[in-house]
Amino acid sequence: MIRITLIFLATWMFSNTTADAATVFITGSNRGIGLEFVRQYAEKNWNVIATCRRPEEAKDLRALADLHPNVSIDKLDVNDHAAIDALAKKYKSTSIDVLLNNAGILGDRESQNKFGELSYENMERVYRTNTLGPLKVSEAFIDHVAASDQKKIAVIASGTASLTNVRYREGMGRYYSSLYAYRMSKVAVNMAMRVLAVDMREKGITVGIMAPGIVETRLLQQAGFGGRGIDPVVSVTGVIKNIENMSLETSGQYIIYTGDTVPW
């Protein structure tokens, strides 16, 4: 009798991570901010669909998946539209409460920092990943989000995309860098998500434009500002709170991890 009860209890505990738990789909989850999202959502007992380009190299992500049975890993390059469609098909019976467009690249720094020496291949590559990637992912998974309880789409934006905050070089904050390709891609995705918020209103889907702050990640190091970022834990804790607070009234807002709005 005790054995049966114990088996029942065990089964019940492990099956807790099924239909009742909310589901989050995260791109670019192998390191940095994406990885931290996986960890925090997993610890909240969410179902986490963690995607990245090379799962076989993503040691930290695999360790999380080993630790949390509710984390599953899928291979996905957000530049591969056919792969996005295929993954959407694989998960067609899965409702996604939070579609988290996190995958993003800086691009080559040198060829986007000096006017007169700009690389357009670099610009296109960065635009494809940072701007078109989130658009395509959102389009492919829109029904999954619409079928969910929470119906949220979020993009990890960048404070560097604030047009208001682009100032002269002199007396500029210590983080100023031209970064044409990166900033252009990030302002464009801001615009895309702003427009999406309008388009998705009638479906009851809310869209969040989430700036994570200046975070200590490899991307920040590539930008030449390593050592000056905040802990990803702090950033992601804040962004998750902002995601929790998303509503139709505030849909399409540009908001940083502290909860403050960022000027366009």
């Binding site: 006017f115 635009y127 701007t131 658009l135 995309a161 047009l163 682009v166 100032r167 002269y168 070089r169 500029m172 031209s178 970064l179 044409y180 900033r183 252009m184 891609s185 302002v187 464009a188 995705v189 801001n190 615009m191 895309a192 702003r194 427009v195 309008v198 388009d199 399409g252």
Partner: peptide
């Protein structure tokens, strides 16, 4: 454009142009 949907390509291109111009100006 807080109430207008659609025109993604055009609007993204103009937002990006605005940004490029801001940076160029600096």
């Amino acid at each position: 454009t807080s109430r207008r949907g659609g025109f993604y390509a055009y609007r993204m291109s103009k937002a990006a142009l605005n940004m490029a111009t801001r940076i160029l100006r600096a």
